[in-house]
Design a protein around this nucleic acid. Structure first.
Lengths: 356, 356
DNA sequence: GTTTAACTGTAAAACGTTTAACAGCTGCCG
DNA sequence: CGGCAGCTGTTAAACGTTTTACAGTTAAAC
């Protein structure tokens, strides 16, 4: 067995043709006679030849790689994104290089920098803050890129794919209000992150719209375990809200952990709306009512956008905004009359008159 | 802003040196005078130069990439593996190309094939069955590779990193027996997968060792949702076991879903041991007792092995076997007297005499 | 029967690096 | 003061592809 790897040249001599012909057989750029083609393929098989992507890329300038940068490879939301992107990229002949910024801006820059060394055809990035990384700003316009999730939707530098986070927060709070919950706590990861802020704004707006008290946001961080402690501490120092809305899947975990530790039952003592929708949320005695982000659609939209750009589309940058939806399950209990603007103003109006 | 990317040559002319010098500044292969170096670095910065990995790799033959192949990017076990590998690879200057075989042997071969096109420095693979993929067999010896998890530990073709799955199954069942559970069901994903078979063998052996009935294995597949239905159906046709041992994190989900649907309480009606250990398993009113795989160690061992091989180590292939451990929490209830060989034989011997 | 066009195949020049070989310059030893 | 070693920098030749320009062959068109 050969130590070294077969090259075009070796295949060519073995098949008795020029290297250009072999190249044509593999790239399909020019047609080649059927039996020559057969001979080449046979030779290639015998040598178990595989085209060298580095050489190919160097010469052609085309890369067939996309870089995918996410803040955290332990967060299911991001890995499910990657999972779907990998399938689509693969389908279209691209390989995926993953990089994690681990939520550090510095690491993010450095990972992006090395990603660029690949001269990738495109980049899909979930920035770790809502500031677009400097490197991407610099590359905007010459490198196809799509920004996902942690981003202001009308960022002028690149295409974006996000959900309507304001609406997501509002939907959740309206549901809680409908079920009669007036004291709402929000479990946020970090207030510095745009989608989180938007979800909070949406939640707050929905509450005000009905004249309910502003929800109170608790910042618990992006780690489930530590977040659990933080939220548990918060529960210790504050009156128990009637409902909690978790703003990410990790904060959902944090809330659940804190509630379990303090033996506060869901939904008997407190109602809960989870964020994102993963199997573990339904596989419980009390399946969690959740705000589902359409991960498939997000990934799909990001990939389609990137493909367009990679195909040369140079139109102005385009924001895609998708919609989260409420999965109504069992973790929100009916706590009293529906809270409507009327009922909260007039205190005892019949809430049944107001339909959604 | 320049359309094209800066090259070594441009940096060289701008800094007034030869391209070789610039190369030396970046690779550090040969020392270069301090102020020249400064000039080069300045020029590079101004052009925002970044070395082209394709060119570099083509010329040097060194790749600085490792391929990572897993069966499923939606399975937390694999993504947490990837997460850790990415950190270590990055630390050592390697980039990671991920590929998912989606549990299909054909896709696996094709993904590996394209991975090879990168001429990677090494490959870490979790095969989708316990048969080593043909391509890897062919490459064994010339391409550094480490096989993880789904693999027979003494596979002679490559280094392996696994846990002692037999032991893992045994530990779990012994715990169940200690707690007085005699009818044990095993929720397996696929019987065709080596680690699963080993876990079952271990579980069975532990039961026999104490003269208890053989656990019965239920094959529920690798998808949580469908698995839940399968297991629920099984529950419908069979007497309720006293305890269930799930053999993967996904089957844990399946079991939980089925139990929830049938309103069977854990641990009141049935005890449960989960496999793997993820935040959602503890964030419940009844935190799950679990068999924890040491993911950090697995990833660490795989990477260290690969580094060794990439550094040229050509010693015979080496199996690393790590150990799972029982995380005792609340999902296993005491069901009766401890089941020991004596008690099961003599039916009424005092189990309290037998200590662990 | 010559000209054109269409088709297939080939030779050779890139692509942006790394690196072996070499050249110039010090300073030091004999 | 010649020669030699030790630095530091440069020249130029790879690396394995893709691709342009061109050559040869055959078929169609006039």
């Amino acid at each position: 067995m050969n130590r070294k790897r077969a090259t075009l040249k070796e295949v060519a001599t073995r098949a008795g043709v020029s290297i250009a012909t072999v190249s044509n057989v593999f790239s399909g750029r020019k047609p080649v006679n059927a039996d020559l083609k057969a001979k080449v393929e046979k030779a290639a098989r015998e040598l178990s030849y595989q085209v060298d992507r580095a050489a190919s890329q160097l010469r052609s300038g085309r890369a067939q790689v996309v870089g995918v940068l996410v803040p955290d490879l332990d967060d299911t939301f991001f890995t499910s994104l990657i999972s779907r992107l990998e399938v689509m990229a693969r389908r279209d002949g691209f390989d995926v290089i993953v990089a994690s910024s681990r939520d550090e801006r510095e690491l993010e820059e450095s990972r992006l920098q090395t990603l660029l060394g690949w001269r990738p055809s495109g980049i899909i990035a979930v920035p770790c803050s809502d500031k677009v990384p400097a490197i991407l700003k610099r590359e905007a316009g010459r490198l196809p890129m799509v920004l996902v999730d942690r981003v202001i939707a009308d960022s002028p530098v690149a295409d974006t794919v996000t959900i309507d986070n304001f609406e997501a927060g509002a939907i959740a709070v309206r549901h809680l209000l409908d079920m009669g919950h007036a004291e709402i706590a929000l479990a946020a990861s970090h207030l510095g992150i745009a989608p989180i802020r938007d979800r909070i704004r949406g939640a707050t707006a929905a509450a005000r719209e009905r004249g309910a008290r502003d929800p109170v946001a608790v910042e618990v961080g992006a780690n489930a375990e530590r977040g659990g402690e933080v939220f548990s501490d918060w529960l210790g120092c504050n009156p128990l809200p009637s409902a909690v809305l978790a703003l990410t899947n990790v904060t959902t975990l944090a809330v659940l952990a804190a509630l379990a530790r303090r033996r506060i039952d869901v939904p008997e003592k407190v109602s809960l709306i989870a964020f994102d929708d993963y199997p573990w949320m339904s596989a419980r005695k009390t399946p969690l009512t959740a705000i589902r982000q359409p991960v498939d659609e997000i990934a799909g939209a990001a990939w389609e956008r990137l493909k367009l750009r990679m195909a040369g589309d140079a139109s102005p940058s385009h924001p895609t905004i998708l919609h989260a939806s409420l999965q109504d399950r069992a973790s929100v209990r009916r706590a009293g009359p529906r809270i409507t603007a009327a009922s909260s103003k007039e205190a005892a109006a019949d809430p049944a008159l107001d339909t959604t």
